[in-house]
């Protein structure tokens, strides 16, 4: 019977494929980091080891403010998007189908269905008229635009998690006279957490990646890291961009390590 003993964590080949995927995932990243130490002026031709581009990036105000702006927008937009998406997922899953359900579903997924350039031009025209009417040209427009296109990315994982989530625990809680809010906080939310985290991470990453919509919505002095790099792409892309990305990567890894060490202690 020993060979009939089934372990879900060891489906044949799955571990190998997964590890290979992780390796391939990090291969371009490794190349990117290596080239950040390139002494030459292009990211494609290795001319020796140097910290030159870290120095340039450190002194480049434009790059630094663009990076901070990108992060600020991504944090704000992913919070807003995840909040809206979680509520919408709770509202549209696990209930009798009703008129308008398809409408809500299509509405939420709409940003996925249109190429970015179209949304970008539409938003340019719409927001520009608001900008002219109100005189406000701040980052609010970029945050609103990013929140909107991040919603479907946050919504789908949360919905996938909710669908078929075991109802019995919630019913049990309700039977024990827990208020709906308590049931939600103590039972539903913890069960939903992995979906919410997955959704929030997707939203964050998607916001951080956006070029086209940002390019059209931004006002004066609102370059994000991607639009800054897009401007470089046409002329010369120096390893400076690699250096910034490497620093961001290192920061991410440091933060996550700290996070894990701390939560481990608390356990």
């Amino acid at each position: 019977m020993a060979d009939r003993n089934f372990s879900a964590s060891h489906l044949p080949g799955f571990t190998q494929i997964a590890l290979l995927v992780f390796a391939l995932l990090y291969l371009p990243i490794a190349v990117l980091v290596v080239y950040s130490f390139n002494a030459g002026t292009t990211s494609g031709l290795w001319e020796g080891f140097s910290f030159r581009w870290y120095g340039t990036a450190w002194q480049n105000d434009a790059v630094q403010s663009a990076t901070l702006r990108s992060l600020g927008i991504a944090v704000s937009a992913s919070i807003i998007a995840t909040f809206c998406a979680t509520l919408a997922a709770l509202g549209t899953t696990r209930r009798k189908s009703f008129r308008g359900q398809t409408f809500i579903y299509v509405m939420i997924n709409q940003p996925l269905m249109v190429p970015e350039i179209v949304t970008a031009v539409a938003l340019l025209i719409f927001f520009a008229s608001i900008k002219v009417a109100t005189g406000y040209q701040g980052l609010g427009y970029l945050i609103a635009a990013h929140s909107a296109f991040c919603i479907p990315f946050a919504y789908l994982p949360i919905r996938a998690r909710l669908e078929g989530m075991d109802l019995s625990l919630e019913t049990a809680a309700a039977d024990l006279y827990a208020t709906p809010w308590m049931t939600f906080r103590r039972v539903t939310l913890p069960l939903l957490a992995p979906g919410i985290i997955a959704g929030a991470m997707l939203a964050f990453v998607i916001s951080l990646d956006d070029v086209v919509i940002t390019e059209f919505v931004k006002s004066g002095g609102q370059d994000t890291l991607p639009t800054y790099m897009m401007g470089q792409l046409r002329r010369v892309m120096t390893p400076e961009v690699n250096a910034i990305s490497s620093v961001l990567l290192a920061l991410t890894v440091l933060l996550l390590t700290a996070f894990f060490l701390l939560t481990r202690k608390n356990d």
Partner: peptide
């Protein structure tokens, strides 16, 4: 529950479309 999402999307995605 869907209202906040619909609001944001109407303002910054579907509406302008």
């Amino acid at each position: 529950l869907s209202a906040p999402a619909i609001f944001v999307l109407t303002f910054a995605a579907c509406g302008p479309l």
